[in-house]
Structure formats: C-alpha cells, structure tokens
Design a protein around this nucleic acid. Structure first.
Lengths: 190, 190
DNA sequence: TTAACTCATTGACTTAAGTTAAGAAATTAA
DNA sequence: TTAATTTCTTAACTTAAGTCAATGAGTTAA
C-alpha cells in the first residue's frame, strides 16, 4: 500500500532509503464508501489526500445544480483549496466509488518538509507540472466545441466515462446532460 | 526596480535581509518593445520571467487563428511550460506592450534554491496558490455563458480590456471576435 | 416484487454563437 | 498625408446548445 506513494514520487526523483522509510512509517490511511463526503461546501479542511484506489469528485451547487469541478483518481493528489486555512470551502469532495486514501495534515507535512527538504523541493516540482498540465487542459477546453471536449475526454480520461454518471460528466464538460446525450447520439451515427 | 520583487515575495513570508541582498544582487533585467517575441512555437526556453512592467500574452495557432492562452501583467511570474526542458514550446510568448522583465534561468534558480531553501519553500507555496486560483478561474469559465465570462473578466481583470485588442480578448474568452462585438453591443443597451 | 426515485433520452422550441461576407474605423507605414 | 493594413462592427444565415416537458430505463429501498 505504501509502495504506491514511493513509486509515484520515484517518477520524479530518486527517493533515498531513509526518506522512503520516513514516508512509509508516517503514512496514514483511510477507507471510504461510495457516496461518502470528505468535505462540505462551507466546511473546513485540515487534510490532504493521495488516492491509492477509487475516485473523488469535487463539485459545488449553482442554480440548484451540481457543477463538477474535477475528478481525481489513482495516483492523484487532492489538496482542498482551503487546506490548512481558516476559510470555508467553496466546494464538496465526494467519493463516487469506494476509495482508499493516504491522508496528510499540515503538522505532518511541516515536520516532513523540515526534516527532508528534498521532499518539499519535489513538491514544488510536481506543483509546477500540475500547473502546466492544468493550463493545457484549460486551453484545450477554451478552444474546443462541446463535442470536441467530449472526444478529448474520451481520449485522455476514458476510465471516467465508466466511473462517473452522465450528468456529472456533463457539468464537468461545461454542458447540460441533455446536450451530452445528444452529442453521444450524434457520434453513434458516424 | 529590485524592490518590486522583494515586495512581491514579502506578501507571502518574511524575507531576511540576507536573502533580500542575494536576490537584489543576482537580479537581471531585460527590456522589450511592444511586439517583441520572447518565445516561438517550436522554440526552446531557458528563461523564466517576473514582470515588473508591461504585458505578455501567450498564444498558439489553431485553424490559422491566434488562440490566446493567458495574459500576464505586473507582479506575475511567467514560466514557459518547456522551461529547462528539451522539448519544443507549444506556444508563443509576445510582449503586447513595452515590457520590463526580471529574468531567471535554471542555473541561477538552482543556486538560489540550494543556498536559500526557504526560497524554494516559498516557491512551492506560491505554486499551490497559483493552482488554486487557476482552478477557480477554470471553474468560473466552465459554468458561465460567453456573456458572463466577459463580465467576469471585466470585473477581475479590467486593465486588460484597455491593454489587449478585441480579437485577443475574444480568443482568451473562448469566442469569436464577432461574438464579443455583439456581446458588447448587447450590454451597452442594458 | 413492487413502488419510488434517480438518471438518461427524446422532442419541440428558443436563443445565441459560429460562419461568411461586406464595409467602417483605427492604426501603421510609406 | 495618404495609402495600406489591421481591427472592429454589422447583417444574413446556419448550427447547435439551452430550456421545458414528457417518457423510458435503471436503481434502490420498502
């Protein structure tokens, strides 16, 4: 179980045996059931997550509808925007499958960063990769039609098509469920 | 001139006199004219920038049209996605005004991070803030109509309305220049 | 096993963005 | 200062997404 985290980090840099042990020993896990809410809109957060198994969806309510912000799956880090801050969350975090998480907190994070500066350095590098990836996704979104966005998602995150419901996917793609239904029908014929 | 960088960093943490001096002494500036290209699509980059004055636009070509990815203005950091990597850039960086930049490079960055770990720590913190801000912008974009997106930009980045041309703003907002023109006309009447 | 509920599909209609093309306005260069 | 070029606006038309409403399919719970 701990291995997954080490494997993930090892993609970016060499993890010394010492650091590996420190991470393994301090690792803390939690299990959630499908439908469990990790964070509520208006709530506070002192936890960040690394997904070992399962899927988390972030969403908020607008005009009485759920608007999906993001889907997080295996090997992804979820840091609530209000993590370690005393401001209320703007969104929900919900497990849309049974989910196993590695859970972090500000105190542990600080302790680890102080003890192993290379870990904070690695976090910076990963954060910058996340920024670059995010910008690419956003750009793709802005320059595409709803149909193209659906096709792009099919190509880049095909697993989500099975894991999430259509109305969740629709709002993630910035469209109405009816439109997604029609797009799928249209593409069937081709 | 150096003061701006120190002021910017001081928003997030206390900058010791020693670090301030190190930053000030190693700071390197460049001046550009309106229209100058900092990076070409397909080109390589070993520079990152902190904008002291002016405006940089990132864009690429799709279907023969310029698609604006982002506008960067005073106090913003521009790190090309291929910075310090041997992969070609997917986009252009263009000064849309006369611009004054503080220029960084991988070697200097490494030297400073090694000497002042708190600077790398700060970079991580800022990177995470950038991620949170970016996600909020993307979410706002996804859940809004083109007209709402225009109004949102008017509210959050009013200066850009003067600094960039309409076709640049239109593609930044994910619409055609004709649509932006019509939206503006529609809003005039209200 | 049925009843209740949620989710997905379909159809008719409305609305606004895309497309194409022309011309006006503004900017830049000769 | 004029000519050339670029940018912006407008109009007519096409296309597809949003809206509203009904129905069908699938899931969950009594």
């Amino acid at each position: 179980m701990e291995k997954q985290i080490i494997e993930y980090l090892s993609k970016y840099t060499v993890i010394t045996k010492e650091l590996e042990n420190a991470i393994t020993e301090s690792a803390f896990f939690k299990n959630y059931k499908k439908g469990d809410i990790l964070l509520k809109e208006g709530g506070f957060s002192n936890e960040c997550y690394f997904i070992l198994e399962g899927c988390i969806r972030s969403y908020f309510l607008k005009d009485g509808e759920e608007k999906t912000i993001e889907f997080y799956t295996e090997e992804q880090v979820v840091t609530p925007a209000n993590y370690a801050k005393s401001i209320p969350s703007k969104y929900y975090l919900e497990c849309i499958e049974d989910t196993v998480l590695n859970v972090g907190n500000p105190a542990l994070e600080k302790e680890m960063f102080d003890k192993y500066p290379q870990l904070e350095s690695l976090s910076r590098v990963i954060a910058e990769i996340v920024i670059a990836n995010h910008q690419e996704t956003f750009t793709e979104f802005k320059t595409s039609t709803p149909e193209e966005r659906y096709l792009y998602m099919l190509k880049t995150r095909p697993d989500l098509m099975q894991r999430a419901s259509q109305y969740q996917i629709a709002s993630y793609l910035g469209m109405k469920p009816e439109s997604l239904s029609r797009i799928r029908k249209r593409l069937m014929k081709k």
